[in-house]
Design a protein around this nucleic acid. Structure first.
Lengths: 231, 231
DNA sequence: CAATAATCTATACATATGTTCAGCCCTTGT
DNA sequence: ACAAGGGCTGAACATATGTATAGATTATTG
């Protein structure tokens, strides 16, 4: 019934690199798992649900990925690679400030939803991805500083970490943002969504001006460098 | 063995308000559940594990809370109330900018860890708590503006939402922050931890100065108000 | 075309988990 | 002291889930 075409001409078990042809049954199972995790979360995603969504038997997902943990790992790595490739492809034209600005118009369906779900409980692949995103952000921010767009920082690395974690944290808490502002960061077509302004406008206001008045900022900085806890 | 004292003189089933005496077996089960969720997550917390940690039988947790979902709901409400009470108690002395600054020195053990775990998958109680935290932040920020500490905003509500979600998102992604900066936001004694500066210093730098150079900020604002998508 | 190997299904098994239930024990009120 | 009622236990039940296995099916290869 669901056996339309079976490109077994490619013995994919012997292919070391993924991301070449990819639309075998194994890939369909992985895509179904990614979509399920993006929609129902990791714990709402069972072997039988994935099998049903992919139109295969439950045993086949184990046959292909060894275990559910293997499937999870494969999804993590696939999504991480997809995000990296997308960034490489779009980041060529000028630096952007945060991660979401780079991934916002990703047409890759549930990628953002998947990332939002797995950011909370860290797998090794997700940790690696976050580390890479921070590294990339640090590079792009440095470019921005050198080209006069961004202010220099006393702690470039720390600032890159904070900005990246803020962006990813907002993605992880997208349900709250959607409830509070009407902006859904996991929406693939968020670039053309006017509701995104409710989130982006305050973000750029903070990025542009900060929130502290100069006198208070100087005082807070002095209090911070000298001592702490002085009310 | 674990039945040291049993204050059954208080028929707690008929007491509408919790947070009065509280250290009955039911309270111990709830606390064990909160600690377990804070450490192992929601899905790593089973009825038997909670029962074992509380020193009771698995059936008793169901007897007291009806179901595991009831236990989860009770934990959500208890933590939300504890956070609200702690804020009320400490917020009297001057406004603070973000949520974490208010909750940072909460001595209530695994409260922050619990919040970090449940922020991702929203329950009604958590959604209500986040809404309240945003409302509080909006009020405190307004006080800060009126007293000259904080800059005014074109969108006070939106700015409060963004700042709150950023703070909570950083809490939800605390493992990444700990890996990247060595700062553990769920650590109860974070106020005295010098490693916290690795996170707080960049935060206050951004809060104080922003990150955009004035010329670029003005240009971005103009491009944003006029149009969008222009590179 | 036959052999072979891989894909895939259907079923079964083991385990974990939520939940229920019959009954014991202990405290409390009379 | 005695009855009573609820806290509490231990075991059992139903279900869901991950995983293994035997066999059927299908495509590829010599």
């Amino acid at each position: 019934m669901y056996r339309l075409l079976n490109m077994r001409s490619i013995p994919e078990n012997q292919i070391p690199r993924e991301t070449v042809d990819d639309r075998t049954t194994k890939a369909r199972i992985r895509d179904a798992a990614i979509a399920s995790i993006a929609e129902y979360g990791i714990n709402g995603t069972t072997a039988r649900k994935v099998a049903g969504a992919a139109g295969v038997s439950p045993g086949l997902v184990i046959h292909h990925f060894g275990s559910m943990e293997g499937l999870r790992s494969a999804c993590d790595q696939y999504v991480a690679n997809a995000i990296r490739e997308f960034k490489e492809r779009t980041m060529t034209g000028g630096p952007t400030l945060d991660v979401l600005a780079a991934l916002r118009d990703a047409p890759n369906g549930p990628l953002m939803g998947y990332l939002a779900q797995v950011l909370a409980d860290d797998s090794p692949a997700v940790a690696k991805l976050v580390d890479d995103l921070v590294d990339d952000a640090e590079g792009y921010i440095q470019q921005g500083v050198e080209s006069g767009l961004l202010k220099p920082s006393d702690d470039p690395r720390g600032r890159a970490v904070v900005l990246t974690v803020w962006s990813l944290g907002a993605l992880a808490l997208h349900q709250h943002l959607r409830r509070l502002l009407g902006t859904d960061l996991t929406d693939p077509g968020i670039l053309t969504d006017p509701a995104a302004a409710a989130y982006i406008a305050p973000v750029y206001e903070i990025y542009g001006e900060g929130i502290l008045e100069e006198t208070f900022a100087a005082r807070a900085r002095a209090a911070f460098t000298d001592n702490e806890g002085a009310t």
